[in-house]
Design a protein around this nucleic acid. Sequence first.
RNA 1: CGGGAUGUAGCGCAGCCUGGUAGCGCAUCUGGUUUGGGACCAGAGGGCCGGGGGUUCGAAUCCCUCCAUCCCGACCA
Length: 569
Amino acid sequence: MRYSRFLAPTLRDDPADAEVISHKLLLRAGFIRRVTSGVYDFLPMGLRVLRKIEQVVREEMNRAGAQELLLPMVQPVELWKKSKRWEKYGPELLRFTDRHDHESCLGPTHEEVICDLVSRELRSYKQLPMNLYQIQSKFRDEIRPRFGLMRGREFIMKDAYSFHADEDCLATEYQNMFKAYNRIFTRLGLKFRPVEADTGSIGGSASHEFHVLAESGEDLIAHCAKCEYAANVEMSESSRTIPTGEAGDITGVDTPNITSAEDVASFLNADSAQLVKTLIYRITGGPNGGEIVAACLRGDDQLQEIKLIRALGADTVEMASDDEIKSVGGVTGFVGPVGLSCKHLFDDTLKNATGLIAGANKRDMHLTGLDMDRDEASAVFADLRQTREGDHCPKCDGTIDLSRGIEVGHIFALGTCYSDPMEVQFQNREGKRTTATMGCYGIGVSRLMAAIVEQCNDENGIAWPAHMAPFQLSIITMGKSDTGLEASEKIYQELLDAGIEVLWDDRKERPGVKFKDAELMGIPVHLVVGDRGLENGIVEIRRRNEEKKEVQLGQILPAVQDLLDGSFA
RNA sequence: CGGGAUGUAGCGCAGCCUGGUAGCGCAUCUGGUUUGGGACCAGAGGGCCGGGGGUUCGAAUCCCUCCAUCCCGACCA
């Protein structure tokens, strides 16, 4: 490709509204442009990288025995009503009505459509197992799109769906996909970690997320420093050492205008772990919607809302208003479990605890000497607290570290939660109609592009792993004499004929501009053709950010191939 | 949807407080000089100052309102 004819508009300054490095660099290097909130153009340069990522994903999925197909983006209301998700999915599902007054939606995921297809074609257990995947645009009307490609509303996803005659077969395929995902992210040159995950709104039994480790990640990952244990903090189990409190009688103490756990603890000269923090929530979705509940934790722990939601069997929860707190007998700032009329859940760390301090549900007063076994004998316990750095690993005697991660893949063992309502059935060996068991497996392809940049960048721009770069090599023609252009053209043709992806910077720009752009775009090998070298029959070649080497004109191809091979090491 | 910030040329910004009819750098176009790491000189094009309403003789500037964008929270690949 000749740069003078190529749409690759680079910017000298970071766009002001880009926050994370991948967003800045992808905009600056001319890979993407924003069209509207959470929706992007992929320019020629960006598409080249996207295609390479897709190709790695495709190769590994095929190798793992999955088969590619392509499902529609527009999906009819009937399928979503059948799965009950037309009601459940919420505003992220973009719905619209066509000229015939028929309701449809843009696919945020494809369980409905694939189940519909498979239910019509599947007859016998002999056709199973079957794993079908596609690489396609998805649309989710996200509340807050951000960070460029990291969280778009329209994005490109690889989604795979497997169908099985029984749970054992699903478990085997789940492991197969787990391994395939490890190969994919390894080939993409990423530092990543598979973690145990919440099954979330998709539903199902087992689930792992694959996280690229990066400071800009939106998720928190708890992982053991010693063993393989790793989990999203939304569900990570861990324990902590807690000082035991002195047993005693319940006593009311004045705590004028002192409300926060830390302030009460220091006022009473106690450890904030001895405080019971009581948070009042309203269940906002699910069968028990509207109910007010209390969650009680150690004063120095944070509530993990996802855990609360799971413990309650709710869909969503919200912090209760002051009026709602009052309605269950609480006083904002001085809420405690004693005397609250709503259902309350205690964190596991409060089991058998003695000498606790809690709000008295009276203004300016707390209770001391609370004893769980004596005063809350019928308490219901659950794991509600968020894992903290330094906690004990649930699997070994190691300690837990926290890292930020970008979720780039997610695999689910679904069971029959979709195939059942969607009636994906087959005849088993005994001739009986049986519902297929399912798994589903997603990779955020466009998000991966951003994640790679998050890990692979330096002060000069994007440092693509060589096999992900938009071009393998850039010819940088110096000066303005015709000899330089003519020599460059010959070299360009020679390299193209050898099957090398070449960007020839034939623009009438000064050398500095060309170097800066090639480095910004992350092209791994630069070939510099200048009058000075040509007089002596040589050109210069070098890898991005490395020392240059001189090469005889006749030796260019082998030298280039040598450097390119080296780039894969 | 809550909290915070910002909207002025393709990109980055100044001007706003203290109203007088829009400017700088980069980019673009023309001519010239340059040419081994984001050149220089001269000239040019490009703006309903986010939209609407108000105050005023006069609004980018003050007031109201809507919209958009970005950041922090709930969602997710």
